[in-house]
Lab assay of single mutants.
Amino acid sequence: LQLFIKTLTGKTSTVEMEPSDTIENLKAKIQDKEGIPPDQQRLIFAGKQLEDGRTLSDYNIQKESTLHLVL
């Protein structure tokens, strides 16, 4: 599924993920695209901070969801 990652600067990146992927996997993919180390990334979806060990489906993240990346 395609996700949009929006940064505080207003920049939006697109990443392709599976519902079974963990937040950790997602942060690794963001690191590949943006060069931001996972330990500096905080991802927010629906007002919640996402935890590394959980999966996208745990948070009911659907295709074309927008996640907010806070550093």
Rank of each mutant, 00 (worst) to 15 (best):
K63F: 10
K11P: 06
F4P: 02
E24V: 07
S65P: 03
I61D: 02
L56K: 00
L3S: 01
T9Q: 12
L1N: 04
S57Y: 08
V70Q: 08
Q62C: 04
Q31K: 10
M17T: 05
K29I: 10
Q49I: 15
V70N: 05
G35R: 05
Q40F: 10
K33W: 09
K11W: 12
L3Y: 03
Q2Y: 12
A28N: 10
S57K: 12
K29S: 05
E34K: 08
A28S: 10
L69Y: 02
E51Q: 10
Q31L: 09
Q31V: 04
K29T: 06
L67G: 02
T55M: 11
D52S: 07
T66S: 05
D39Q: 12
L43D: 00
N25Q: 15
L50E: 00
D32R: 12
I30H: 00
A46D: 14
E16W: 15
I44H: 09
K6T: 12
P19V: 08
K29D: 01
Q40D: 07
L8P: 14
F45C: 02
R54K: 14
L50H: 00
Q62A: 10
Y59N: 02
L26N: 00
K27D: 00
T9W: 14
I44G: 03
I61Q: 02
V70E: 11
R54Q: 07
D58N: 05
R42F: 12
D32N: 10
S65H: 06
I30G: 00
L8C: 15
E16M: 13
L43K: 01
I30M: 04
N25M: 15
G47S: 04
I5D: 01
T12P: 04
F45I: 04
L50K: 00
D52C: 05
L50C: 01
E64A: 12
L50Q: 00
H68Q: 11
A46C: 08
D39E: 13
L26S: 00
G35T: 03
D52H: 06
L26D: 00
N25W: 09
N25R: 14
Q40T: 08
E64Q: 12
T66F: 07
T7E: 06
T22N: 04
Q49G: 06
Y59E: 03
L56G: 01
D52M: 06
L71H: 07
F45K: 03
A46S: 08
L26I: 07
Q49A: 11
S57V: 07
I23F: 02
G35A: 05
G35K: 06
P19T: 08
L43C: 00
I23E: 00
Q49D: 13
T12M: 13
N60Y: 06
L8S: 14
L71F: 10
D52F: 04
L69K: 00
I44R: 05
I44S: 08
K11A: 10
K27F: 02
F4N: 09
I61A: 02
L67C: 00
L26P: 00
I44Y: 15
I5L: 05
L69C: 01
I5S: 00
P19D: 08
T7C: 13
Q40I: 11
K63C: 07
K27M: 04
K11C: 10
A28H: 12
I36W: 14
R54T: 06
Q31G: 09
L50T: 02
Q31Y: 15
E64T: 08
T22M: 06
Q31I: 03
P37V: 05
S57L: 12
Q62W: 08
I61T: 03
K33T: 12
Q40G: 05
F45S: 03
G10M: 03
S57W: 07
L3P: 00
T22C: 02
L56W: 02
Q41M: 15
K11I: 12
D21W: 06
I61W: 03
F4M: 08
I44E: 08
D39S: 13
Q2E: 08
P19N: 07
S13G: 05
L67S: 01
L56C: 00
I36R: 02
K48C: 07
L3D: 02
I23V: 12
K33A: 12
P19M: 09
I23Q: 00
E34S: 13
K63T: 15
E64G: 15
S57D: 09
K6D: 05
P37D: 07
T12G: 06
L26Y: 00
K48A: 10
L8E: 13
D32I: 13
L1P: 03
D39W: 14
G53V: 06
P37I: 04
